[in-house]
Every structure is written in C-alpha cells, then in structure tokens.
Simulated scan of single mutants.
Amino acid sequence: MRITIFVTALLMSANAETVMASNTTAEQIYSAAGQFLEAFAEKQADEGFSVTHDSGKPDARLSLATCDTPLDVSFSGDPWKTTQPSLLVSCEGDRPWRMFLPVSVTITGNALVASRTLGRGERLTESALRTDSVVVNSIRRGAITSEEQLIGMEMRRGVNAGTVFTPDLLLTPAAIERGDHVIISARSGNFSVNSRGKALASGGIGEQVLVENLSSSRTVRARVTAPGRVEIPM
C-alpha cells in the first residue's frame, strides 16, 4: 500500500509540473505588457512626448493555457484620453484566451493654451496662443497641439489665460452671414452656371443654407463651398 501511494504521489507531482510548465504564467504576461509599454514610450519620444508607465502585476497564481504564438498586447482604451487605459492581453493560438491588465500611463508634452483671457466669439490669432508642458492624456476631450487647428476658429465660450485648448471650446466661423450677397453655382460635372443670390441664414463651409436667387426670386437650399459662394446640384 505504501509503495502504491508513493508511486501515485510521484505521478501526480510529475503531471502537475508538466501542466505548470506548459501554461502561460503571470510573469510572462507581465513581461509582455512591459515590453509593449516600453515600445509605446519609445515611439512617442520620437514625437517629442515623454511617457511614464506602470502595469499592475497579475496574481502570481494565475495560470492560463499555453500560447503557441507570441502574446498579443494592445490598449483597451485610448491612452491619449485617459491615464488609466488598461491593456488587453490575448492569445490567438490553438487555445485562445484574453485578459485585461490595469495600467497607468502618463503622457507629457507641449500643448496649446490661451496666452490671455479670451471672450466668447473671439476669433483666434497667433497672439492668443502659447505652448505649455501639460499631461496631455489627463485632458479627456483631447488637447490640441497644432496651431493650424486653432488659428481662425472662434471661441465657443470664454476662458482664462492658461486654459488648454480642446475641440469642444471651438466653433468653425461662419463663411456666410445671413443677408450676405453670394454667388450661386449650379453644377453638373465640369459644367456650371453662376447667378447672384442672398443668404437667408448663416453657415460654415460644408453646411446647407437657404439662399434667395436674386434673378428668379426663388429660394433654394445650397451648400456653402467658400466665403461668399454656395453650390446647388443641377
């Protein structure tokens, strides 16, 4: 009986070691996550951003099916809009699985901020802007880093000096104001006919507005294509 028990115990121990050796361990998952975050940090450094990161360690007792392909790691949230995006770690092999790993990511870099107090409806010029170092991904609506996205835009509401510019603060200025005289182009392919009209509403480029054709007195709906110009299909 003692010999049987001893042999059985040896077999159970050997089987357990085989299973543990073949499974994906918590350390392997943690290592794959670290390599992914390091690669992300290096890529952003090339663009002028500094990235610090920390990933939570999975429970050391975690044991998932062995993966016969390299582990796939990706962000499950947008790292540019949150400092806690979490990672999706998955195996796409014969025995697929997936798990989420909490991580902390801080992206620091230059963003555009108001150089002075700005009023609602104010048109932005270069003098209204300055750059400042901010934690970009702590600004959920997305910090703006390009002057081209700001110059010429209007403020949706007033802000204090130092406020980081985000898309929700901006309005595209109207290319046509109500009452403006406009050129109406009736276009079909490369052929077009122009006439004079008057805008009955304000609108930005790409928007639809009502326009009165001054020759026929008809009211038509036209698309704003440029300041002072609208287009209707023939």
Rank of each mutant, 00 (worst) to 15 (best):
A65K: 02
K81R: 15
V113P: 06
C67A: 10
R130A: 09
S216A: 05
L112Q: 06
M155R: 04
R123L: 12
N160T: 10
G48R: 00
T219P: 05
V224P: 03
W80V: 11
F36V: 09
R196W: 04
G158E: 04
S22K: 02
A226M: 12
P102Y: 10
T83L: 01
R98M: 08
V113T: 12
G48E: 05
S22Y: 01
R141W: 07
Q208R: 01
P96K: 00
T24I: 01
D68E: 15
V136T: 14
S127H: 04
N213K: 01
H181A: 11
D78H: 06
P85A: 08
M153I: 07
N190S: 09
G204S: 10
T172S: 13
M1N: 12
R196F: 07
T69Q: 14
G179E: 13
F191I: 14
T172C: 06
V113Q: 09
N110Q: 10
E27V: 11
S133W: 02
A41M: 06
V209Y: 06
S76R: 02
A41N: 03
V159K: 00
L169Y: 09
F6C: 14
A201L: 07
S127F: 01
S22P: 00
G179A: 12
T66F: 08
A143G: 10
E231V: 03
V220N: 03
L88N: 10
V51G: 03
A16L: 15
A60R: 13
L170P: 10
P102D: 14
K57G: 05
E147W: 00
E231A: 03
G77T: 06
E38A: 14
F40C: 07
E38C: 11
M20F: 03
A199L: 05
T18D: 15
L37Q: 12
T131G: 15
P70S: 13
S55R: 04
A201V: 08
R140H: 11
A33C: 09
V89P: 13
F100W: 11
P233C: 04
